[in-house]
Nucleic acid binder design. Structure first.
Lengths: 193, 193
DNA sequence: ACCTGAACACCGTTCAAGT
DNA sequence: ACCTGAACACCGTTCAAGT
């Protein structure tokens, strides 16, 4: 007989729930994520998740916060020969993240009342800091309009890429847009300097 | 006694459902829109909606298609002294739409498989045509990278504005971004011409 | 084109009583 | 920190039999 000591207590149910939820998120989207279904998949009782999350929203909050943390990590690792190229690389990274995890991206930026995501908010703010820092490197001092423009541009590319309409952007188009935007940023910083 | 001839047949249940659904969408978002709840609000039986919509997805599809049609209408009415100002006005219109109907905007651009929205797709494609036409007026011939850039920029502003994070854009910032983008579009069209 | 009413397989959430 | 098991108030969806 094998030593399948079916554990009475689950090893790390919290992590197992988050992991299973990440998969479910990419398969069916945030709307149809079910706590009971996750419990079934993991072989625990339907109310076991409530030992780790107050309710369904708390699980979604944790997933969302985790998503922002991973996005920040990815942005931090973007590299480029020049500052402008690094900003372009950050843009590519942002879009690539949405492309790789569209369900998670949708969850992160879903319009819900912000009070339902207390854990997410500080992590999201921290993520935006990396975009700010990158732009500051290019332009010297940081123009808030530049920050808003680049963030909106990159977020728009991501959202249009992640959604399911036939209208989404091709990867080559995304590269062209981000490259041109980074170039424009450098040119204006030369003029105004 | 008043003549409240409580109608056995509802006057126009289809329109009444769509109207009630639009309200519910803005109150609680797309996820928690319930057919049974709509039926209750309208005083009809819980399965009456199935006379007009095959299922819940069909109702969401109809709402989404209607949303794109209204957005197209609004974009068409954008005016400006110059072509560039008209493009900027279209950008403002797009963002204002998301701002006025965040629940509907979220529904329209939610990542679901496109097959679940057959009615929406052609109307969405038609909407994009108005952005294309506006840009063509500014640049003479239409650069696909310009189209993609402006659409992504405006969509990103809208999405960040419509979502519930503390990070959203202020209206003054949105005006600054769209104005500068339109200006940049004009300047490059002069250089390359 | 609606109604009533029952039914099925789901949900999230909360108990009570166990180990 | 889990379990079983029951319970409550919801869902979407599909019947059957009416008007």
């Amino acid at each position: 007989m094998s030593d399948h000591t079916a554990p009475y207590h689950h090893g790390d149910l919290r992590q197992a729930l988050l992991s299973a939820a990440r998969d479910a998120l990419e398969r069916n989207g945030p709307a149809s994520l079910s706590l009971r279904d996750l419990a079934r998949q993991l072989g625990v009782s339907h109310n076991a998740p409530y030992r780790h999350f107050a309710d369904r929203d708390a699980l979604l909050d944790a997933l969302s916060a985790e998503g922002f943390a991973r996005l920040a990590e990815a942005l931090q690792q973007a590299r480029g020969a020049t500052a402008a190229e690094r900003v372009a690389a950050m843009g590519q990274t942002y879009v690539a993240f949405a492309d790789a995890h569209p369900g998670l991206f949708a969850l992160m930026f879903q319009p819900v009342d912000a009070t339902a995501r207390p854990e997410t908010q500080p992590v999201a703010a921290r993520t935006l800091e990396f975009l700010r820092a990158g732009i500051r490197e290019v332009t010297g001092d940081e123009d808030p309009v530049d920050v808003a423009t680049l963030w909106a541009l990159v977020h728009g590319l991501s959202a249009l890429r992640a959604n399911a309409h036939q209208l989404f952007m091709e990867p080559t188009m995304i590269r062209a847009v981000t490259a041109r935007a980074a170039e424009a940023l450098v040119q204006r910083s030369r003029v105004t300097r």
